[in-house]
């Protein structure tokens, strides 16, 4: 809390930014009232919220300088963890998603310890390979996971007054999770923790000489990041109802958060959310109709363009300071 007060001292534009973001989120909560007929729009927006939450989780780790190519591992384990928990213990999805998040966090913490000495491209490579391991287990532990047949009948979310698993339920669940996660990430990045990550990203050795415990911060950051990704996977599982190993432990869910966070702007708190909204809408309303089979070529192009021409992403183009404290 004290550091946030500090932030307020340093950045007079902090409140207007927070107000804009809050207003925008409230507006999104009102969308269903206006566009309730267009269930396709609701679906697309729901998907973009899920991706935004996943990208935020990914970006928290990226803030420390660690680029992960393996968030599908945490996402997939979250999906399986939550689905298995709900199916075996007959619990409500709102309970089981915590089990999913925890599963993601545990795997993330484990990989954080295992890969502690790896940096840069080699950390990225190790996380890329990591995805195959839970996938292999999910594929072959048939008595638990039914292997490649996948899990069926995963219970849907139910909200009072709304039809079970309707588009509206998923919309509200996804938007609420995104809002909570955004708040958590904003709090972390504006605390001493966030400052430590900023320092570590720029110069790990110097950071240590001013008292930053690099291993500790990296470990808790990757754990929270894995928790977020696990929750996202869990929400995905309960919204879809069916999961199988190749579907959740796929390159797709490793690539998406990175693409969206980098494209939106990884140095800003809100960047990943902006990236997810823009790219998902572009994908579903422009690319999907043109290239039904290979519409995700958009994501490949987006990331290549980002690396070549706009290292700060969209938010960077809008003038967000790369190193900003609030960044929102």
């Amino acid at each position: 809390m004290k550091v946030i007060t500090l932030t307020l001292h340093l950045h007079q534009r902090f409140f207007p930014k927070v107000l804009t973001v809050t207003g925008f989120i409230l507006l999104l909560f009102l969308v269903p009232l206006l566009a309730i007929q267009s269930s396709f729009l609701l679906q697309v927006l729901s998907t973009s919220f899920l991706y935004a939450a996943l990208s935020l989780s990914w970006n928290l780790l990226a803030y420390s300088g660690h680029i992960s190519l393996g968030h599908a591992a945490f996402f997939g384990l979250g999906a399986y963890g939550s689905a298995l928990f709900a199916l075996n213990f007959d619990t409500d999805p709102f309970t089981s998603i915590w089990a999913g998040g925890l599963a993601g966090a545990l795997l993330a913490a484990f990989s954080g310890i295992l890969f502690a000495r790896l940096r840069g491209a080699y950390f990225a490579l190790a996380t890329l390979a990591l995805v195959e391991i839970p996938k292999m287990i999910a594929d072959n532990w048939v008595s638990l996971t039914r292997g490649s047949l996948g899990l069926l009948n995963i219970p849907p979310f139910k909200l009072p007054l709304i039809n079970a698993n309707s588009n509206l339920t998923i919309y509200l669940v996804n938007l609420s999770s995104l809002t909570i996660l955004l708040l958590v990430v904003a709090l972390i990045l504006n605390s001493r923790w966030g400052w430590a990550l900023r320092a570590l990203r720029q110069d790990e050795k110097v950071s240590m000489t001013i008292g930053i415990n690099s291993n500790f911060y990296t470990l808790i950051t990757i754990s929270v990041s894995g928790f977020g990704a696990g929750i996202c996977g869990a929400i995905f599982a309960h919204s879809i109802g069916i999961i199988e190993p190749g579907m959740v432990f796929s390159l797709h869910y490793s690539a998406l958060p990175m693409v969206m966070a980098l494209f939106g702007g990884r140095f800003s708190v809100i960047g990943p959310v902006v990236g997810s909204l823009v790219l998902t809408l572009l994908d579903q309303f422009v690319f999907q109709p043109i290239f039904p089979a290979g519409h995700q070529i958009l994501y490949g192009l987006a990331i290549m363009i980002t690396i070549l021409f706009m290292p700060g992403g969209l938010m960077g183009l809008l003038g967000a300071r790369k190193h900003g404290i609030t960044g929102s």
Partner: peptide, 28 residues
């Protein structure tokens, strides 16, 4: 040639994008 430092990390991210782009091109 245009990609900036840190080269290894940036090229790994860039070529990851190339992976997605090529996979979808094959799909098309």
């Amino acid at each position: 040639r245009v990609i900036k430092e840190p080269l290894e990390l940036n090229t790994i991210v860039f070529t990851f994008g190339l992976v997605i782009a090529l996979q979808n091109l094959f799909l098309i």
